[in-house]
Structure formats: C-alpha cells, structure tokens
Design a protein around this nucleic acid. Sequence first.
DNA 1: TAGATTGTTAATCGATTAACAATC
DNA 2: TAGATTGTTAATCGATTAACAATC
Lengths: 223, 223
Amino acid sequence: MKGGMIIPEKTIERLSVYRRLLETQPVKRGGCVYSRQLAEMVSGTAAQVRRDLMAVGVEGHSKRGYCVAELAEAIGGVLDTPEGARIILVGVGDLGRALLGFIKAYHARLRLVAAFDNDPLKIGRVVHGYRCQSVDDLAGVVRSGKVEIAIIATPAAAAQAVCDHLVESGIRGIINFAPVPIQAPPHVWVERADIATALEKVACLVRQRHEDPHPKNVLTEEQ
Amino acid sequence: MKGGMIIPEKTIERLSVYRRLLETQPVKRGGCVYSRQLAEMVSGTAAQVRRDLMAVGVEGHSKRGYCVAELAEAIGGVLDTPEGARIILVGVGDLGRALLGFIKAYHARLRLVAAFDNDPLKIGRVVHGYRCQSVDDLAGVVRSGKVEIAIIATPAAAAQAVCDHLVESGIRGIINFAPVPIQAPPHVWVERADIATALEKVACLVRQRHEDPHPKNVLTEEQ
DNA sequence: TAGATTGTTAATCGATTAACAATC
DNA sequence: TAGATTGTTAATCGATTAACAATC
C-alpha cells in the first residue's frame, strides 16, 4: 500500500475478518490461500477479496495464491497500532462484562486502560481481571492515559452525557452500544453497535422476504 | 407504502432508530416533528429522512411536519410482526445474558421462545426470567415453536455447527455475535454483529485519520 | 404574500462486480 | 503449452444528496 491514503471502511471490516480466519483456520498445505477460498469463507466474491488485498500491499502468486503468514502480517500492518490501541469501557453491566471478556481475548491488540461505572456497588470490584472505577475519574484517566477509544455500554439515558465527557477529554473514537444515537463532532468517529436495531432489522427483513418471494425495490420499481 | 415492495436495508435500520427517538424524546409542542429535526438527532440529512419516510407511507404537512404518534405507528406497521417476532438465543454466557436483558426490554415486539446452552451447569438455570435449555432440544423447539430468528452468542468454535442445526430446522434469520463468519443458504438472512471487528475497525480508522488529516482514497486517487 | 417544508426526481457518490491482460 | 489465478481497469449497481415544484 502506498502511504498517505485511506482504506475504505468496508475493506477495513473485511480485512479484520480475513485475518481472524487466517489465524484460526487449519494451515493450508504450502501455507497458501487463493482469493477464491477466502471469498468462500466470507460468502463474498474472489474479485472483492483481491481488491481488498490490493490495499494492504501483499503480492499474490498466480500459481500459489497468497502466503497466509505474510498476508496476516500485512493486514496487521494496516489494522494494528504497534503497542495496542488504548481503550476504556464505560458501563459495567452484563454487556460491559461481556465486552471485557472480548477485550481480554484481544489483549495483544487492545489495551484496556480502565473500566467505569456510576454504581457504588460496582466501583472497586474486579471483572475479568479489570478493576471498575468511578465515572468521576473518567476525564482524568482519558487525558493522562492518552486513551484513543471508548466503548459506551451504558443505558440509553446516560449515553449522550458520557459521550460529551469523552469528547471534551479528547477521545478520538467511540463504539456506542446504547440503543440511542449519540452526537459528537466530526473529528470523533462514532461506530453504532445497536443491538435493538439489529434485532428489529432481521425481524423485518425475514418477514418482507416471507410475504413476497420476488419483491421489487419500492424506490426504483419499473412501471 | 405500496404493497409488494421491499424497503432498502439501510432505510429499515434508520426507521428503527427514528421510532425509538420518537417514543423516548419529550413530546414536541403540537406532537409534530420536521424532517430536519429527526435528521439532526441521527446526524443525517433532512432529505434522507424524508426519503426514508416515503417508504412508510405517512404524509407530512408543509407547515407542521410529521405527526409523531402517527409516524411511530406507521413505522411499526413496516417493522413489526403483529404478535412479536419469535426468537431464540443460543449461548448463555455474559453476552447471552446481556442479550436476554435487551430482549426483555423489547418484549412487546420480540417473543423469546427459548434460550440454549451446552453447559450442564447452565441448563435449568433462570436468567432474566428465561430458563436455559439444553442445545439438544434446539431443533425440536425451532420446529414446533415456529421460531423465525436465532441469535448466536456462542464461542467462535461452535458457531457454524449451531448455524447448520438452525438452518436445518427451518430458521429464517440469524444474528451472529460469534467473532467468525458463518455460512448459510441464501434464503436465510445472516446479520453480522461482530464486536471484535467493530473494535479493530475503530482503532484503525482513528489511527488513519490521525496520521493524515486530509487523506485520499487509495483506490480512486487522482494523479 | 413570503418563507419554510414536503414529496419526488435527477445528479452524484461510493462500493461491488465483471472483464481481461499478464503471469506462472 | 493449457489452464487457473492475480492485479487492475471499466461497467454496474445501489445508496446518498441536491434540487425544486407543490403546498400551506
């Protein structure tokens, strides 16, 4: 990949998935994969896989495909912060607990700096090896710990206020699991992770498809 | 909305968000909202909101905007299954527990038919009011309970096998929280809900933007 | 009326897919 | 060589945004 250019959002998502597959699949003979094989694993097309891999700057071989080890390393060069991204979690309920488990599993690439809650019963308790702190300490920790990313796993009612504090403290990216949209300035990337919407979406799509096996798009229907 | 047509995926996602905002925001004076106001709440454009609302078949008023109550009801007509979508959960770990909490909060629109795990210590236990059953009963429950949607919240290693059982039992939609892609036939809608990818994506995007404040797209760069 | 908003079409933008010369 | 695959450009597709007549 040439320097100073950005990789499309969707490509980044797929690169993350490709790498996890490369790391967990049993090693292919010769340690190589074809774009066609990766495509099959993600239910995509070989052309798309090759286009995605263009962005990471690895070279394939017309006979052998791509070297698995080299590919995984090159994707890491695109996705990873060398020392691991510095991250905090706000909201240590059931979902927060689950997220701490995820982060722990990815400890090589993600550094959890702190976890926060406003419930006095939770403050001081240790979850998945991380101690829960008071949200009153949030701004200080974000600033002094050079935290780049925050996960909001609070109830809907608290999300915007937490977001505002994070932005003010210099956060750069937020992953929002609260079932409500939050507003942040354009220099802060907000990733929606809205479970309620995902559930409603699938329920609706499944019903749409059931009721009409060959539906047309409402906005582009031909007469 | 005219019958027999499908609504774009992205529009469905936004309709879900609009409705939740309409239901939770303090009622505007006169019980009306403008497309511009909804747009601001979701950090979108007024044109997009109006285009989305075209699909639900409500009429706005050039002086008053849209009637909140009427709009929320009309969105429900598009999104909701009248009796609530029939859903199951597979995997009652931390994440599964959190999801049961979410589903409980949406009990009017989602009917949890059952929750499953393969851990003998969990089977029989009650979580958020739902009793955990053995995965051995999965196929039978899906078939006899006419379950449309399943949530996979298992470890990565179990996801594909669970998916296969679900598909065989006649499931119509799957939301996959396991950090691995699953393969299903085209008549089954699979929605990715990959937390590991979301974390890696935001970490990468935040870094990209930091290193180059005015980046170009790697694939469409002009010379 | 003047001004703001809706409903809708056309233009733009970005992402996916098709196609194919170059390679082994 | 013949055949499959890569790397890349052009074509297609779908989603977003701009524009504007109709409305109140």
